[in-house]
Each structure stands twice: as C-alpha cells, then as structure tokens.
C-alpha cells in the first residue's frame, strides 16, 4: 500500500510539473527590455526538486503532449513539426538537461552545506546543455553560420537565463523539504 501511495504521489507531482512547464510557455515575467518565458526555468527546477529520474519523466511527458499536437510548446504551438523544426533542438535538449541538473543538484540539494553550490552547478550545466543541443540544431536546420546561430539562438537569452539560474537556487532550497515531505508522507 505504502509504495503504491508513494508512486501515486510521485505521478501526481510529475503531472503537475509537466503542466507547469506547459504553462511556463504562457507566463512572461518582465525582466529588463525583453520579458522572460519560464519554460526552461521549470525544466531546471524539475531537475533540482524532483531529481534526474522523475525530472526525466516530466520532460518526456511534456514532449509527448507537445508531439501529439497539444498547444504546450513556446507561443502556444504544438506538434511534431515544432520538434523537427529549427527550435526542436532546445526541446530535445530538455531531456539531457534535466538529467544533468538532477544528477548534480538533486541528491545534494537541502542536505549539505554545499547544497547551494551543487544546485547552482547543476542548474548552470542544465542551461548549458540546452544550448549545446539547441544551437547546433538551429544552425544545421536553417543552414546558418555559427555566428548567426549563436546571435539568434543564444546570446539574446543569456541575461534571462542568468536570472533564472540565480532564482533556481533559493527556490530549490526553500521548496525541497516540502516536496520531500510530500513524497515521503504515508497515509
């Protein structure tokens, strides 16, 4: 009974984080001249709060939802055309990003005095992995030069990403105990 309850709670949490990533496409926070969209922020947060395994489940479910055509990708789009299109690399990049973030940050968050450093390192690595997948995909998909691909697909978003990475650290430290107690609670 207990393991079933744990699994049910995890499933609900995974579904809620998937919904958060989808909603992140619609929430814009005005930071500086360009508002930031919170999709990749929630991907990184899924890695730090839920760990690599559950984080992976979150991202896979999100991509399945988008692939079948539901409007959960950026700007309310959806479908395989987006995954195979110029920005598909960023979406595919969420898979290794959440795993890397979870592996580095997940275990250490909340139970070590170095936890903030691990969360920061994990989140930073996750953000880099998204670009490592997204920028080459963009370059080859649109047959761009490297400089143009970087200036169109990475440089404008760096400030927003720095804000997101900086915000993940305190948010994870505050919320990790609540998430852990929810998952470990027995009926």
């Amino acid at each position: 009974m207990s393991s079933k309850i744990l699994s049910l709670r995890s499933t609900v949490l995974i579904a809620l984080f998937t919904a958060l990533i989808a909603v992140g496409a619609y929430i814009a926070v005005p930071v500086g001249p360009v508002p930031i969209v919170l999709q990749n922020f929630f991907v990184l947060l899924a890695g730090t709060l839920l760990g690599s395994r559950k984080g992976l489940s979150v991202v896979v479910t999100y991509l399945v939802l988008g692939a079948i055509g539901l409007p959960v990708f950026h700007n309310g789009t959806g479908g395989m055309g987006i995954i195979l299109g110029p920005t598909g690399g960023y979406l595919i990049g969420y898979i290794p990003a959440v795993v890397v973030t979870g592996l580095i940050a997940g275990r250490k968050a909340g139970d070590s005095k170095n936890s903030a450093l691990f969360i920061l390192l994990g989140t930073l690595s996750g953000a880099v992995v998204v670009y490592l997948c997204g920028v080459p995909w963009l370059k080859y998909n649109l047959d761009m030069a490297w400089g143009k691909a970087l200036s169109a697909g990475m440089i404008p978003f760096l400030i927003g990403d720095a804000v997101k990475v900086a915000a993940v650290v305190p948010i994870t430290r505050w919320l990790k105990p609540a998430i852990d107690s929810l998952e470990n609670e027995t009926a």
Binding site: T11, S57, T61, L65
Partner: peptide, 10 residues
C-alpha cells in the same frame, strides 16, 4: 495517466 492528469492540471 500522466498525460490525462497534466491536461487536467494546465
């Protein structure tokens, strides 16, 4: 199940 829950939660 996750897909259905997610659609409900969004």
């Amino acid at each position: 199940m996750r897909v259905r829950l997610t659609i409900t939660f969004i």
